[in-house]
């Protein structure tokens, strides 16, 4: 039953224009991250080559190419920004579209043998698979971009780090898929559900980081580092709240995985991932609980 629900959902989602447009936007943004990386690489290398020529004409030794000092995956650091913006929006819509039609179709579904828990698990699995497919497409575009910019295929280690980054992104985006689903179950109305989900996205992506580290402008830069300790009570509070700002945890963990902000231990990365995992589990359990109590008998979503 779970597989049937998941399969139906995948087919239905891939045929919805809104979803396809957002998916295309994410892929374009991924390609854009590569283009920006290439542009930056091209400009700096051009300036470097001119400098090398100038220094050579004076008989001075040339410094090493700055790109040789940077991690190869740094070219994709813009992805760490695009995923919480465009990716999260796509994930919200994905979660919303996964359940919203069932406000009217639910009467037919639940007059069948399927249990509500099986149904919700099927929906979550379906959305998770669609998200994997989206991120695999984005991973492929990223790999091609890296190969073009660096003029060589990424190493196995780089590909491993890139895969780990996309796995982390999947977990991060699942939070938003589940928020999209939960808001449908709580509000019932199409427009209100989407507005509520967008509200949650705004709070998580913009408002909460402003309270935690956005108050310290230098720490708003991407990737951000842990706030310095301070004696002021307010900043002590914001520093304590920071682990619960999932967008910051995502950016910090991504920076560590891509090695664009120094290296952190695996334990430290796992500590950053834990709030994401915890929130996903809580939202999934809440979703299952809400479906169990949801009234599918009226067959209307008021729109």
């Amino acid at each position: 039953m779970t597989a049937t629900i998941a399969r139906q959902q995948i087919v239905s989602l891939l045929r919805q224009r809104t979803f396809v447009v957002l998916l295309a936007t994410l892929i374009v943004m991924t390609a854009l991250a590569g283009v920006l990386g290439w542009s930056s690489h091209h400009t700096i290398v051009g300036v470097y080559d001119e400098a090398v020529k100038l220094l050579a004409s004076r008989g001075d030794p040339a410094p090493p190419n700055p790109f040789l000092l940077k991690p190869t995956l740094a070219l994709l650091s813009n992805m760490v920004v695009y995923i919480p913006f465009i990716g999260a929006l796509l994930a919200l819509v994905l979660g919303h579209l996964s359940l919203v039609d069932d406000e009217t179709v639910g009467r037919l579904i639940f007059s069948r043998r399927i249990s509500r828990t099986e149904y919700m698990i099927g929906k979550i699995v379906g959305a998770a698979i669609v998200l994997v497919a989206i991120l695999l497409a984005s991973l492929a575009v990223s790999t091609i971009s890296l190969a073009i910019v660096n003029r060589t295929m990424p190493t196995g280690a780089d590909l491993g780090r890139l895969a780990a980054f996309y796995a982390l992104s999947w977990l991060y985006l699942m939070v938003f898929v589940l928020i999209g689903m939960v808001t449908v179950l709580v509000t019932r109305r199409r427009s209100l559900a989407l507005l509520s989900a967008m509200g949650a996205w705004l709070v998580i992506t913009f408002a909460f980081p402003q309270i935690t580290s956005g108050l310290r402008p230098t720490q708003s830069l991407n990737p951000i580092v842990d706030p310095a300790s301070t004696s002021q009570a307010f900043f002590r509070f914001t520093a304590k709240a920071r682990p619960y700002s999932i967008v910051e945890q995502y950016k910090a963990a991504s920076a560590s995985i891509l090695r664009t902000a120094g290296t952190e231990s695996t334990t430290s990365i796992l500590r950053q991932v834990a709030p994401l995992l915890g929130l996903s589990i809580v939202l999934a359990v809440v979703g299952i609980g809400l479906v169990d109590r949801h009234d599918y008998s009226s067959g209307s979503n008021d729109e």
Binding site: M1, Q8, V11, V105, L108, R112, R113, I114, G299
Partner: peptide
């Protein structure tokens, strides 16, 4: 069960819709 004002998945074909419900019914 046929409810008043029956709604099904608009992006699926009639066959896909009915097959989906057939599977849910075992």
């Amino acid at each position: 069960y046929l409810p008043a004002d029956v709604r099904m998945y608009p992006h699926l074909t009639a066959r896909e819709n009915v097959e989906f419900f057939a599977k849910l019914s075992g």
